[in-house]
């Protein structure tokens, strides 16, 4: 998807063309939904958060400034929406119960098994990250935001964000490599 195509869709949305909003968000749909799904831990909450993010971003699109990447703007809205909701719940009890996967990428049964194993391992590793680490790690993985942008979105100092990332990657790496050997 080219940047100019995205820009055109943004411009249309600003002019109130509702038909342009679906195609615009679709560029980031999978990443945005995956982010909310992994952060909230269940599909029902993720869909609610996704819906709310859509409402807020449509209402706020006139205020969006090109100084920021559109994806960063969108993920920041999603992040704040998720935090508002999830903060209301007890963070400690928010142990995720992510559903097992239904998507398979290959028809080879052996390969599929290995793929599923890796997938489940990563899923479990992310699931059990402390909340702050998960927040930073998932934002980086799904939004591709820079750490500086993540620091702004999460309202944390850059060094704290880097430290959260460092520990998340370390944990996931350990789980992936040590168990594969």
């Amino acid at each position: 998807m080219s940047a100019t195509h995205e820009q055109t869709l943004i411009e249309k949305c600003r002019n109130g063309e509702t038909a342009a909003f679906g195609p615009l968000i679709k560029i980031y749909r999978k990443q945005l939904f995956s982010y909310l799904l992994r952060l909230s831990g269940n599909r029902e909450d993720a869909e609610d958060l996704f819906q709310e993010t859509l409402i807020k971003s449509w209402r706020g699109i006139k205020k969006y400034s090109e100084l920021q990447k559109f994806s960063s703007w969108l993920f920041t809205i999603a992040h704040h929406t998720a935090m508002d909701k999830l903060r209301k719940r007890n963070r400690e009890t928010m142990i995720t119960e992510t559903e097992p996967d239904k998507l398979s990428h290959t028809n080879d049964p052996h390969k599929e098994l290995i793929g599923k194993e890796i997938r489940n391992k990563i899923q479990r590793a992310v699931e059990f990250l402390p909340f702050k680490q998960k927040e930073v790690f998932l934002l980086r993985v799904n939004s591709g935001m820079s750490f500086k942008e993540i620091a702004q979105a999460t309202n944390e100092p850059l060094n704290t964000v880097l430290s959260h990332m460092h520990y998340s990657v370390k944990k996931i790496k350990r789980l992936l490599w040590s168990e594969n050997e």
Binding site: K30, S34, R38, G115, I122, Q123, N142, I172, L176
Partner: peptide
């Protein structure tokens, strides 16, 4: 580090 980030993105991508 790059592998962990890319692999996670690839494996945990979902959709509605």
């Amino acid at each position: 580090v790059e592998v962990v980030i890319n692999q996670t993105r690839e494996e945990l991508t979902d959709d509605i």
